[in-house]
Design a protein around this nucleic acid. Structure first.
Lengths: 193, 193
DNA sequence: TGACTTATTGACCGATTGGTATAAACTAAT
DNA sequence: ATTAGTTTATACCAATCGGTCAATAAGTCA
């Protein structure tokens, strides 16, 4: 009956995500979001309800499309050591390519966790837990194929790899250069050898 | 001639640090700072000049008194493996004890680095570089005493330990529990074995 | 065409932002 | 007592904050 929106909600969320990702929730103003999306206040509140609701949407979409889908693709390689290698390579590549140095949206929000509501906290925990589980599955699989020594504890090592991943993401936002990031990767691989 | 300030600048900076540390620069309002220090605007601007200048002071003082002094104490132990063990123990202890879950002021600011000015960036880089150097010295020392195998590359391993430290600090802000944090520590120790 | 529904626009809201200015009260050294 | 500097307490500033709302425009239906 009525009239469809003449801007794409999905694209709008993606553009908002870029801003939240780069600047964080607090430092992102409504004006920033309106400019990034290219709409005005009325349409914004009609479409998203509030700044916080849009943030929630952004984070969920990121978790779904960036983190989950990428890990699923690596998992399909059926070579655990290669999958972990490729994951770290991808992170380093992404960090070096992104001129805004946004890092990882989930990690950025994780550091800010005490200042967010319970829903956001759940999303972040779920996302990072997902990455930890990915590592754990790869390690177990590697132990079965013999690519990874039996002496390694999958649960503990997975947490170590996650911590390295998080550390890499933080340090990639301006402290470490390529060589240093590669050193982190090497240490990650050492942990499963 | 005149009259000395009747509030202690040092204490004031410490109180301000607590707020910046917990909430970050953007999310901290002037009202927050005034309440935490217990002075009013006039005194604030007379003493510190601006919010940003106070932030700079806070970060420098933290780097000097929290990070540097603690590492210096550990370094005096003359037992590299023990020093690294104790460092991670101290970080875990601190993270679990702090009910505000503030994490590490330097790490928090490091993640926010692209949104800060050059002076702040320098302070953060210098601080993290200092921790990396601490690790490197301990590893080299351990290799000399035989406590750490010669096969380990001090420079690379130090970067790995720093990444683990940073990851631990981030995850301790709400994602990981004590058991998981201990797992990270175990992986750190594994890296030097 | 006219009714109905929805989206867009832009003005408007009170509250808060960081920061300035002012004046009076106070303290201490000259 | 004068003087210099500090404290408190306000009042004030323009700008921005997130958010609301009524009018208007645009599309779909009968």
């Amino acid at each position: 009956m009525p009239w469809e929106k003449n801007f794409n909600i999905d694209d709008a969320v993606d553009r908002a995500t870029e801003v939240f990702w780069a600047k964080g929730y607090e430092a992102t103003s409504l004006a920033d979001l309106l400019q990034a999306i290219g709409i005005n206040k009325g349409s914004f509140y009609n479409a998203f309800g509030s700044k916080k609701k849009l943030f929630t949407q952004s984070l969920l979409k990121y978790e779904r499309e960036q983190r989950r889908d990428i890990l699923a693709e690596l998992e399909s390689l059926e070579d655990p050591v290669l999958a972990i290698n490729k994951l770290f390579d991808a992170l380093i590549e992404q960090s070096l390519t992104d001129k805004d140095k946004k890092g990882c949206f989930l990690v950025n929000t994780a550091l800010d966790l005490p200042n967010h509501d319970i829903d956001t906290q759940k999303t972040v925990k779920k996302g990072l837990k997902g990455s930890e589980s990915f590592f754990e599955r790869q390690i177990k699989s590697g132990i079965q194929t013999g690519a990874i020594p039996k002496t390694i504890d999958p649960g503990i090592c997975a947490k170590g790899l996650l911590a390295l991943l998080v550390g890499l993401r933080v340090l990639a936002r301006g402290v470490f250069d390529k060589t240093s990031l590669m050193a982190i990767k090497k240490q990650a691989i050492d942990l499963i050898h």
